[in-house]
Each structure stands twice: as structure tokens, then as C-alpha cells.
């Protein structure tokens, strides 16, 4: 097995390269079946059905975005209602300014809800996936650069309770993985 990174640094995990999306899917199923918990599969595009295979739960981002949208909605209620009805009532065309002007508040209510939701979705995404993070043990592995081109990788992490370098390496090789590599933290 080759080494990536400084061999005297702590261990991050063992990785292997697979040829196709189908091979990686099969490997992921086997790794999960063998009882590993801390592993991840890497691909240039999201592979259909992979979440179920690796046992990932549905992303909670939707609920977070709902809270963001609600915040936006309430902000728009406050920002429109307080000035229009309380601080600075401006009578135009003799039309109502407060509660009964609700239809005229709709466009801004809607737009602000969408704006806050979208920002929550983006910031929430970055927080969930732990980005921006410019330095990661996987970047020590030269071949891993292929992940954004046409490379498919699986990595079993050392924090898995069942992990042993030798066994994980042999297991990945038995699944058809090539270029099995020990990845170090540094």
C-alpha cells in the first residue's frame, strides 16, 4: 500500500479508486455490509441512490430553510407594517395604511421570504458540508485530484471502531479497488 502525506503524521484512513459509478456503488454496498460506519464515497457527480446505500438520512436542510423563510416573512411583516401603520402612516389615494392594506404588502412579504430562505439554504449548505475548508487530509493524496474529473473513490476512515489499516486495505482491494493508499492527516 502506498502512503499519501507524511507517514509519521496521524492516520486519516485508507482509500481506493474505482473505475465506474457502478463499481463504486457496489463497493459502497459491500463496505456498509461489512459493518463499517465511518467511510465515504467520492464521485464527480452525485450518484443516484447512493444515500440509501450508505445509509445516509435525508438532509435536514429543508427544515433549516423553513426557519430561514419564516424569519424573512416575519421581518417583512415588521418592516412594512410598523412604518406604514405606526411610525409614518402615509395616506395615498385615501387608501388604508395598516391591517387592511394587507394585499399591497404581499409582494414584499413574498420576496423577502424567498430572499431569506435562499441565503439560509446557501449558508446552511456550507455549514452542513463543512466548507469553506481549504486544507483536508484527502488533498494529500495526489490521485484524489481525479475526483472532480472522472475518478471514483472510497475512503474508510481510521476513526471507525472496526478500522485496521491492513484489513481495510485488503478489503478495498478485494472489492476491486485500485491504487489502495494510506492517507495521513498531514
Amino acid at each position: 500500500m502506498e502512503n499519501a502525506g507524511n507517514p509519521s503524521a496521524p492516520l486519516y484512513g485508507v482509500g481506493a479508486e474505482f473505475a465506474t459509478a457502478a463499481d463504486l456503488t457496489r463497493a459502497a454496498r459491500e463496505i456498509r455490509g461489512a459493518g463499517y460506519e465511518s467511510f465515504d464515497v467520492f464521485s464527480p457527480f452525485p450518484i443516484h441512490g447512493m444515500d440509501k446505500i450508505v445509509g445516509a438520512r435525508r438532509s435536514p436542510l429543508g427544515r433549516i430553510v423553513f426557519i430561514g423563510g419564516l424569519t424573512g416573512f416575519l421581518t417583512a411583516v415588521a418592516v412594512q407594517y410598523l412604518p406604514s401603520a405606526v411610525i409614518y402612516p402615509l395616506i395615498v389615494h385615501g387608501k388604508p395604511t395598516g391591517f387592511f392594506a394587507i394585499p399591497a404588502y404581499f409582494p414584499i412579504l413574498f420576496e423577502t421570504t424567498v430572499l431569506f430562505s435562499a441565503f439560509t439554504a446557501f449558508v446552511g449548505l456550507l455549514m452542513m458540508i463543512g466548507l469553506p475548508r481549504f486544507n483536508h487530509p484527502l488533498f494529500n493524496w495526489e490521485r484524489f485530484k481525479g475526483v472532480s474529473g472522472e475518478g471514483f473513490f472510497a475512503v474508510i476512515e481510521s476513526r471507525d471502531p472496526r478500522f485496521s489499516t491492513e484489513e481495510a486495505g485488503r478489503f478495498l482491494e478485494s472489492l476491486g479497488g485500485s491504487n489502495v493508499t494510506v492517507i495521513h492527516e498531514d
Binding site: P44, P46, D51, G62, S117, A121, L125, M128, I129
Partner: peptide, 23 residues
Amino acid sequence: LGWRGGNRQWRHYEMAYLLLAGL
């Protein structure tokens, strides 16, 4: 931003993309 393309990233990414499309 240090994108790695792992399934742990893709699954949230796909959800975020779906939400942004829905919005």
C-alpha cells in the same frame, strides 16, 4: 471552497440545489 465531492457533501448539496430551485 475546498469541495471534495464525497457523498456526505453531495447529499446536502443536492438538497440545497433542490431548495434553491424550488425557491
